[in-house]
Design a protein around this nucleic acid. Structure first.
Lengths: 217, 217
DNA sequence: GACAACATACCAACTAGTCGGTATGTTCCC
DNA sequence: GGGAACATACCGACTAGTTGGTATGTTGTC
């Protein structure tokens, strides 16, 4: 979750106040949402003043936008560094990523919350730019997942709706996060993800699963 | 306020302003969230004044609490009236409910949003009462679903983690709603639900699905 | 001295909630 | 049936507090 991606380190290794604001804001947005986390609170917890805040960010919305961009990059980075990315079998590669997620959300220390999910639902009608920035996070993950699933299907000569499966994964994750917030029970997330992992694994198995009763459309 | 004295209270056939406030608030809360939907806006769209609002509800939070209670009851009612509730086979009864959901979210006219989900994520840290009221919605649905799945398992002498399967269903629904808000693409919801329906159907099939690769814990 | 990086003081807009007041019943005793 | 006592439903100007944002001053560094 924490992207240690420094853009330009040479000139100033200063104790970046701007960086602190981004970190604090991300934490508060995740916990309380975009609206409830006030600029004053973000400043206070960052050791910054109002003047410093608006020196670095033109508005609260601009700050959130940058938080979301960093969130997306951090996600991509941690996925790129996850175990199993270099597995020989494409199916293993795909399932390894799912297991990486399951593992991450099994960790009790991990905050069960997604900046993109929280923001998307809250401001989808009122702040289009934030909604789009949040959506970018989902799309990036969706594409990556779909690529992995496509590779897996190709290697086993399978035809599956990989786009829908990738979306399903993200949907279940986001929804489980909502449920865990409501129930204050962290275990929902990993439990739900494990089931979807099993479903996707069954879809990647050579024999298509027999649907005993077809859904009415 | 004195219950003993009042024999028969007026039947109150009034053009219920209170009811209008609840309906409007539910709609606005679903679209914009609890915080962004202001009391003034709720009043304006209900044709009510500030005075009328606080005559009927002690606070904005109290209004939301009642909205959530009604949301839970409405959900229970529509489920009780859904097709297939009286199917002979317990497996059919369970799958019929899942299909009922899929159908509802396939309807383009249906607003893709859940009051409980929206509220839970937004105010889980700031308004415990609302968080609990939202959680009650989830728990009610979860219990109902689990009962149906338990019946289905019993009839086929299966052992499944029905609690987790019921939770999985709700999680996927909630997450898909988040994604649909972010992407402004309604089709995500029904598509994701259909996959989970297939997964649950496979779990209710007599033969347990063969897990080709076990998830690493 | 020019510029970035802040600090301080302040403001206009907005928000939930209040409060005195009105209009229209309803109840009950005589 | 008439009238005091009370209850319900509502009005809308007002307030106290909060919010994101601004205007202006200071400081350290090249």
């Amino acid at each position: 979750m924490n992207p240690a991606v420094r853009q330009k380190s040479p000139p100033a290794p200063a104790p970046n106040l701007r960086h602190a604001l981004l970190e604090t804001a991300t934490r508060l947005f995740r916990r309380q949402g975009f609206i409830a986390a006030t600029v004053d609170e973000i400043c206070a917890q960052s050791g910054a003043t109002k003047g410093a805040f608006f020196h670095h960010f033109s508005s609260k919305e601009a700050l959130a936008e940058e938080c979301l961009a960093r969130w997306r990059q951090g996600m991509a980075a941690s996925i790129a560094a996850s175990p199993g990315v270099d597995a020989a079998d494409p199916v293993d590669r795909a399932l390894a990523l799912l297991d990486f997620f399951v593992g991450r959300f099994s960790d009790p220390k991990q905050l069960k919350s997604c900046l993109a999910g929280t923001t998307a639902q809250e401001v989808s009608e009122t702040h289009p730019r934030l909604r789009d920035a949040a959506n970018d996070c989902f799309v990036a993950l969706q594409r990556h997942l779909q690529t992995l699933l496509d590779d897996a299907c190709r290697s086993h000569r399978l035809k599956r709706d990989t786009a829908a499966l990738a979306t399903l994964w993200i949907a279940t994750l986001q929804g489980a996060l909502v449920l865990s917030k409501a129930s204050r029970d962290d275990s929902v997330v990993a439990d739900s993800l494990r089931h979807v992992r099993a479903y996707i694994a069954s879809q990647l198995a050579d024999k298509p699963p027999a649907a005993r009763r077809t859904a009415k459309r």
